[in-house]
Design a protein around this nucleic acid. Structure first.
Lengths: 186, 186
DNA sequence: TGACGAAGTAAACACGCGTCTACTAACTTG
DNA sequence: CAAGTTAGTAGACGCGTGTTTACTTCGTCA
């Protein structure tokens, strides 16, 4: 029987994973240090590499926590532009965003993990999005929509909503919905 | 009279600036080292800080080389969506892009230069773009367009044109023109 | 109870970073 | 030609990085 385990392999592993997810999202791959992750997780630094192999592999595992673009791609096809717009608009006004998405955004310049990022953007967003689109150049349209999503994240990290003119949530959603419609239509 | 000057303050300064511009565009702020810049410029590393003060100040000077979003914002207002589309489409298919724009893109996650990046994006793109737009929420529309521009850069750095479905240049321009129209219209 | 495996720890490793200092050598000026 | 100014150089400084090693401590099972 396992009671309160002071030595808890799985628990420690999970705490490291959670800490890493939050920090990668906040700071990006380069600016997160092993010691920072260890401190945040309340674990010893050597355990990170024991459980995950390396910083790079830990990052890959963090990204693997999330499957497809969460909750946005699923639902009726005709409301897809609206759902995308809602997602982006929400990121516009609040600080919250999917940690995995944010981590992707802030880490895309690190050559060390270029392949990981690429595969993840492709399998979690671009590919499933393109699969939803009819017509010839579905890949192009999915790519443009993806660019708008990631670009919004980058911009939002640079400016506060006030600096962007404090637009009303409804105005942002309306504008973005029309844009995504033009993005996605044949 | 100045003949062949082996000691050439201005020339060396310029070579450092050129090397830095290219490297910052290619690798982003974090992954460019002082030693790399010095080697590329054929100059001694100590001269960089003598002429520019610090890596951070050198980066600021590189960004300051470029004024407004070059050649795109100037011209007839009704063709602005088209010009933006041409710019983005060109970046889609070829590796070329404005070094300064690329440097902005690849360095946006470095907290050390966050303010520099922010000011530059604002003064070179977002603000002049918003000034061209009539209507209430010009700032929002300029921001969305900016997000699309930067997002395209990020995506293009992750994928080759082939991986994006090798769309024809005309198809990309046509699609993007319509998107920018919806972005920018009242 | 005692031995063994595994969770956790502390410290060091080698290396790369931005920066700075002490110095050499080239050009200018009197 | 001699003195002074300054471009250019070599090398070290302190620090932070990811990673690894040697060790201690806990929990379990024969």
């Amino acid at each position: 029987m396992e009671g309160v385990r002071r030595r808890d392999r799985e628990g420690t592993r999970q705490r490291i994973l959670d800490a890493a997810r939050g920090l990668f999202a906040e700071l990006g791959y380069d600016h997160v240090t092993m010691r920072l992750i260890a401190a945040e997780a309340g674990a010893n630094i050597a355990l990170i590499n024991r459980y995950f192999g390396s910083k790079r592999e830990l990052f890959a595992e963090v990204l693997a926590m999330q499957g497809r673009f969460p909750g946005v791609l699923d639902g009726p096809r005709e409301e897809l532009p609206r759902r995308l717009a809602e997602y982006v608009a929400e990121r516009f006004r609040s600080d919250w965003a999917s940690p995995v998405m944010t981590a992707l955004n802030r880490s895309s310049a690190s050559p060390e993990i270029h392949g990981i990022i690429r595969d993840r953007v492709n399998s979690a967003i671009m590919e499933p999005l393109a699969a939803l689109l009819p017509g010839e150049d579905a890949q192009l349209r999915a790519a443009v929509a993806t660019a708008l999503i990631t670009g919004t994240g980058t911009l939002r990290q640079l400016f506060t909503p006030e600096e962007l003119g404090s637009p009303s949530h409804d105005a942002v959603v309306a504008r973005l919905t029309r844009i995504f419609e033009v993005c996605l239509e044949v």
